[in-house]
Structure formats: C-alpha cells, structure tokens
Write a protein that binds this DNA or RNA. Structure first.
Length: 572
RNA sequence: GGCGCGGUAGCUCAGUUGGUUAGAGCGAUCGACUCAUAAUCGAUAGGUCGGGAGUUCAAGUCUCCCCCACGCCA
C-alpha cells in the first residue's frame, strides 16, 4: 500500500472560479485521489482557499463587509460548489487559518536564522485618502506614451508599454480615485532565493519524470537573465499574516504582513494541521504526512496546478522548504495543465467570460462536466471548449455508449427473464475473449491513471464501455433467446456483471452515476477489480437488481443553443 | 523586441529514442441489427503532418530560416 499526499493549487478567495480553473487543478487532483483510494491506497487530499492580499480586501470593501467576514462567506460558497462537483477533499482549508499563521511565521523565523532573509527599503506610492500603500496596478493615470487615460501603474493596456507608477501623468488611486498620493519609504523582507539557486537546480534535475512543460518553465525562471531573483515576502497591508520571527516580534516590521505568495503554499502543510484538528487527530497524525523524520518517508506527494502556478511550486515554495533546513516532505510528482479556452477565446474571471462553476451546476449534473473536462483535459497543449463538442461528446459517450448499454441490458433481462441475474448456459470462446480483452484494457487503464495521463485514461475507459456493446452485438442475446434461452441467460448474466464492473471502474470520473448504478445493481460493496473473470462473477445467479431510470439524459439541440446564447456575453 | 509552448484528417486530439501503406474518438457516407435513451455494431471516405531549405539510406519526429496563434518577460 502506498500513501498518497495530493494537493490541488488553492483557488483565490475572490469570487467563483470558472471551468478552466477547475480542470487546471482541482478536478484532475480529485480524479487521482479517487482512483488511489479505489485501489486501496491511503490518501490525504488537501485543498484550501487563498485568502490574503489586496484583491480580497477590495472585494470585501465592495461587498461592504469586513474582510474576514467576506472571506469566511466566500470560503463557504467555494466549499459548497466544490461539493457540487464532488471534489473529495479530505479537508478544504483556509490560508487564513491559525495553523497557517503559526507555520508561516515559523518558516520566516527559520529562514531568518539561516541568513536567507534581507531587509530592503523601497519607495512605494501611498494614498492618503485610502490610508494605504497602493500596489502598482492599483494606480491609474494618463499614459506618457499614448495618452490613454486609464493606464495602470505597471503597464498601459492601450499601448502595452511597461510603466512605473511614477511615469504616469496625473496619477490617481484606482480604489478611490483620489489624487492625494505621495511616495513613501517603506521597509520589506526579501527571501534570498538566489542563494538557493544551485540547490533548486539540483533538485529539479533529480526529477526525471516531470513533464516538459513543468521543467521548462522552472528552468527558465532559474536561469533567465540574471537568474533567480530575490523576492519580497512582506507587504504593507492589514489583511494577512503578521510578520513575526517564529513566535517573536520582528523589530521594524510592525503592522506589516507576509505577502500571499509566501503564505499560500505553506497552507498546503498547514491544511493538514487543520484536517487533523477538524477530525480530532493529533499533530503526529498530520506530521506523518509532511515530516520525513516523522513517518512521511514513504509518502508519494503529487501536486496539481495550472501552468501559471509552476514557478511558485518549483522554485518559491521549494526555496522556503529547503531554506528552512527542516525535513519537510517535498513534491515528488508535479502535474501541470495548460489552459482551457472558451469558444475561440479565453475563459476570463475579470471579464466574466465563459462558464463559471456555479452556473455549470445549474445546467447539468456534475458528472457531465467532469467527464467532458477530464476527457478533454489540456495536458499537452491548450484545449478548446465549444458547446457543440460538449454536447456531442457527452451525448455519445455517456448517454449512448454507457447509459444505453445499461438500459438495453437491464431492460432485456426484465422482459425475457425477470429482475434477477438469470441462470443457465455457460461462457464460451466469445466470453473468454472478451474477458481477456478487458483484462488487458484494465491494465492499460490503470497504467494511465498511475501516470496521471488523464485523457488517455478517459479514452481507455470509454473503450472498455464500448467493448460491452460490441459483445452484445456479436452474441445478440435477442436472437439467441429464440433458439437457446439458456445461452441467452449466460450472455445477459455476463452483461449484467459488466454494468457493475463499469460502475466501479468509472467511479473516479463520474462518481454520482457510478454510485447510482451500483445501487440499482444492488452491488454497492463492489471492489476494484483485479481479476476480470472473477469480477464478472460478482453478481451471482438469482442476484436481484432494479432497472435504472435513464442514467444520462441527452443534451438537446435546443438546450445547447439556449446555453450557447446565454453564455456568449459577459457574466452579469 | 527576447524567451517559452504549440501549429497533424471537417472538429477535439495521439504520435515513444528519426524507420514499413501517419493514428483515435466525434462528425460524414454506406451497410448490419432491432434488446435499448432514433440507441448499437461494422465498413468506407477524408491529411503533400503551417511554409521553405538542410542533415540522413530514411524526418511529422533532428538543424536553420520564415509565417501564424497563445503565453511569459523587458
């Protein structure tokens, strides 16, 4: 038995995520977690909300709520939606948790002790009206280059010129519109990542099985230009983890907080602490997943994330861990995804373009989205969502190939025999050939799942479903029945067992449908198959079942056109 | 402008270290079947693998140049 620690990139607290975000990390992570559990392995699957930073503060202000209250509410919303998609987190934590406060401060203290922190004085724009320092992109003004009047402090969106806030003509706060701004001197902590460049490089080189996408991004950041740059890990904000040196105050850093990119990945670890606390477990229980000196030596740690998150997971977070000098578990396998595009453009949170998780659940059951997204996961390149493709794939795969198989088998049995597994006849060459074929396909399916080749696994699963239809077509029990009812009984007995077999194998992809099928087949205790022949004898003669309702209703052309139109514009 | 990932059948995508007639699913056409959600099964037709040059006995697969899309950075 292997112990699998699995984390998904933690979504930002501000608003509801779209389907591109979902397939970029949470959903494939869930697929892997469910699969490993089904194989009998021990799994700790963690995710959380990333709650600190200016965007959260501003969103809270816009909603007219204190930021902690806003985050608590949004966390509940995201948790409910995650449940809607059947994301099987062992714990869905919060980066604002007490555990993460303590751990983030602990890491900062260790890094300081190791001489990896330096203090840097910077000049930043302060808004007197807002009573806060403004990040570059929250300063607006007229572009000195093209005279566009809504240029941001980091870049002009109109002419794409990169800017410094001080370049802007008539700069103003993007938050309040105030022009009462001044440049102030402020002190911040920087993590000397550059000191760890060789360690990081060696560590990345030791990862032979990482995808090209992952290593190429990491290497670029490591070696491009002057190489890995030191990064500020503190901010002048109210909402965040107070800067401390372990449990002690940090002289000169009063009133400042750690920057989100520093505390967010640490939440992966803190989340395990939250999980333990929420389940009445001890520190030793969660540390056995994270400390290689306390039991985590045999843990396989897999991270899932979109490609934009790769640098933080290959460089920043490892730098924090390596720099601490403590025996924390580091990632073994890092699975990154490209982007899912929407109807010829990008999904966009800021522009409200595409389909958002809450909206998707209003339209269709989670299995529909899970199946399409996973079977079209953007693994090797960006991929494309179109309503036509979605409708065709879901109707064909789920309704026609799988759903209809269940339907034809159970209904045939009911009409010719009854609602129990019929007796009589025996398996012959055709059946043995099918079993051999399925045994081989099961092996390939598992190989793809073990390697987290999501699309390939989906394709193999679909081929396994198809094999059932091929079998029925070959032996034609409806014809057999006229000449030899006993033989027809044997054929349908096998087919009924296939339904349970399929439900078990499909569970990681489509958990709800799988559970429903197992219930109707009265086989909720079905185990993951190893020997196909044995597994297909699981439902014995006389075993009662019920004929299920339509497992997957098809998406009609009218529905598709309606949705296509509804989601063509921006989210209200 | 620099760098990065891509550009393979109508669509969504596979193509290991260069090697026989370039693959899958969907869609299309034809046929079979009628148990089933007008479902299923089979067969066929579709590609000068973005363009050009080069290396090689042999290139979608390596090298160079160009074009296009996307992303990151200055």
């Amino acid at each position: 038995m292997t112990r699998h620690l699995i984390t998904s990139a933690i979504p930002y607290i501000n608003g509801i995520k779209h389907l591109g975000n979902l397939i970029g990390s949470q959903l494939p992570a869930d697929l892997f977690a469910r699969y490993q559990r089904a194989r009998g392995n021990e799994v700790l699957f963690l995710c959380a909300t990333d709650e600190h930073g200016t965007p959260a503060e501003l969103a809270a202000a816009k909603a007219g709520k204190p930021v902690d209250e806003y985050c608590a509410e949004m966390h509940a919303v995201q948790a409910r939606i995650a449940e809607g998609f059947r994301l099987s987190f062992d714990h869905f934590g919060r980066s604002s948790s007490p555990q993460n406060h303590a751990l983030t401060q602990h890491f900062a203290g260790r890094l300081q002790e190791a001489g990896l922190i330096k203090e840097v004085s910077e000049k930043q724009v302060y808004s007197n009206t807002d009573g806060r320092f403004l990040p570059d992109r929250y300063i607006e003004g007229t572009c000195p280059n093209c005279a566009y009047d809504k240029a941001r402090g980091d870049q002009c969106e109109n002419c794409t010129k990169q800017l410094d806030p001080t370049d802007l003509v008539e700069p103003r706060s993007a938050i309040s519109g105030s022009t009462d701004l001044e440049v102030r001197e402020t002190k911040h902590l920087f993590l000397r990542q550059s000191e760890l460049k060789d360690d990081l490089n060696a560590w990345i080189d030791s990862k032979k099985d990482w995808p090209i996408l992952t290593t190429s991004i990491a290497k670029k950041w490591l070696h491009d230009g002057d190489g890995l740059r030191d990064r500020g890990i503190t901010r002048d904000l109210h909402w965040g983890i107070p800067v401390k040196n372990g449990t002690k105050d940090w002289p000169g850093m009063e009133g400042k907080v750690f920057y989100v990119w520093f505390d967010a990945p640490i939440e992966y670890i803190a989340c395990a602490g939250e999980w333990a606390a929420a389940n009445g477990l001890s520190d030793a229980d969660w540390e056995s997943w994270w400390r290689t000196d306390k039991g985590a030596h045999d843990v396989q740690y897999t991270q899932f994330m979109g490609k934009d998150n790769v640098p933080f997971h290959t460089l920043s977070f490892p730098a924090t861990i390596l720099g601490s000098g403590e025996p924390w578990k580091m990632v073994d396998h890092l699975k990154s995804f490209n982007y899912l595009n929407y109807d010829g453009g990008q999904f966009s949170t800021s522009q409200g373009r595409g389909i958002f998780m809450d909206q998707a659940l209003e339209l269709l059951p989670p299995d529909y989205w899970r199946w399409w997204l996973l079977s079209h996961a953007p693994e090797s390149s960006d991929s494309e969502f179109t309503w036509e493709n979605f409708q065709q794939s879901v109707n064909k795969d789920l309704a026609d190939v799988l759903g209809n198989f269940v339907s034809r088998v159970t209904k045939f049995c009911r009409s010719k025999f009854d609602e129990t597994v019929p007796a009589g006849g025996a398996y012959g060459d055709v059946e043995n050939a099918l079993i051999a074929d399925l045994q081989k396909r099961l092996g390939q399916y598992q190989e793809h799942m073990d390697a987290i080749e999501v699309r390939k696994a989906a394709a193999e699963l679909r081929a396994i479903w198809t094999a059932g239809n091929e079998y029925l077509q070959t032996v034609a029990p409806w014809s057999t029945f006229k000449e030899d009812p006993e033989q027809a009984a044997a054929q349908i007995r096998l087919a009924l067992n296939l339904v349970a077999f399929y439900a078990t194998l499909s569970a990681p992809f489509i958990p709800d449908a799988s559970a429903t099928l197992l219930e109707t087949m009265n086989a909720t205790d079905a185990a993951w198959p190893t020997d196909v022949a044995a597994s297909l004898g699981q439902l014995p003669v006389g075993h009662a079942f019920t004929v299920p309702e339509v497992s997957f209703a098809k998406i009609s052309d009218e529905q598709r056109e309606d949705w296509q139109e509804r989601f063509a514009g921006q989210r209200a």
